[in-house]
Amino acid sequence: MKTLIIYTHPNHHSLSHAFLQRTLQGLHENPHIQEQDIQVLDLYGEGFDPILVFNEQKRRRDMHVEPSLEKYRNQLLWAERIILIYPIWWGRPPAMLLGYIDRMFASNFAYREKGGLLPEGLLKGKSVICISTMKGPTFYPLLWLNNAHKTLMRRALFSYVGIKKVKFFEFGGMEKREGKQTKKLDRIYRYFRAAAQ
């Protein structure tokens, strides 16, 4: 399965980066996955520009053919599975990842308006796995924020563009000395080592 990993954290000594490394280790040891079927996009390392600009030269209706984003469009089209690795800050993904979403999931690329209530999703058939970490307890987004993070990612974004298969690994309490970081890293490693698709 062609797998695109989108990693979003500015620090390569972070726990998020450790999750990236364990994800890659699991994928590389998975007999169902070939080396050439894995791509990693490090948004901070790449210097991705998350700023959305509309003006006389850049029209919103032309976002889906923006020349500077062609490489990233090709990655999304190539991928059968998208893995997002990021921290949860202020109850939502980092601004860098949200900026990537703003620029990449454009009309006539990720979806097409049909004149009805919902558009036609143009990224059908793909799957998404979100791996996120947070300082607060795991139940915090559900009980205090009405599950805003999962609602944002699953319903407001991926369902809108036709992606129905979305899985979450939300790890809370990650800044505690006894946050069971190693156990959770191992869980991710085992998942990707064994996952058939």
Results as ranks from 00 to 15, higher is better:
P87M: 08
L117Y: 12
L118D: 05
E70P: 00
Y111A: 05
G115Y: 10
G115Q: 08
G99V: 06
R81S: 02
L84P: 00
R81W: 01
N108D: 15
L69E: 00
A106F: 03
F109G: 03
M63K: 04
D102R: 13
D49I: 07
S68P: 03
P67W: 01
R103Q: 08
S68G: 11
K58F: 14
G99F: 02
N55I: 06
E80L: 07
Y44P: 03
A110H: 00
K114P: 02
N74D: 14
L97S: 04
E56Y: 14
L84F: 13
A110V: 06
R103H: 08
L117W: 06
P50E: 10
S107F: 09
R92S: 15
F54A: 11
S68F: 09
L84A: 01
P119I: 08
Y100R: 02
V53D: 10
H64N: 08
L98D: 00
H64Q: 07
L97M: 14
A110Q: 01
L118F: 15
P94L: 03
A95S: 11
G91D: 04
M96F: 06
S68T: 13
L118A: 09
M104S: 01
D102A: 13
P119W: 04
P119K: 05
L84M: 09
W90V: 12
R73P: 00
L77P: 00
L98V: 08
R103C: 08
W89Q: 13
R81P: 00
G91T: 03
H64R: 04
R81Q: 06
Q57M: 09
M104Q: 02
R81E: 06
L69F: 05
F54D: 12
E70H: 07
W89F: 11
I88M: 11
R60H: 13
G99W: 03
S68Q: 14
R60T: 13
L52I: 01
R112W: 08
M96G: 06
D62G: 04
L76K: 05
P94F: 05
F105S: 01
V53H: 14
P67V: 08
H64G: 01
K58R: 15
E46V: 01
K114Q: 14
M104G: 01
G91L: 06
P119R: 03
I82G: 02
G99H: 03
S107H: 09
P94A: 02
E113P: 02
R103A: 07
K58Y: 11
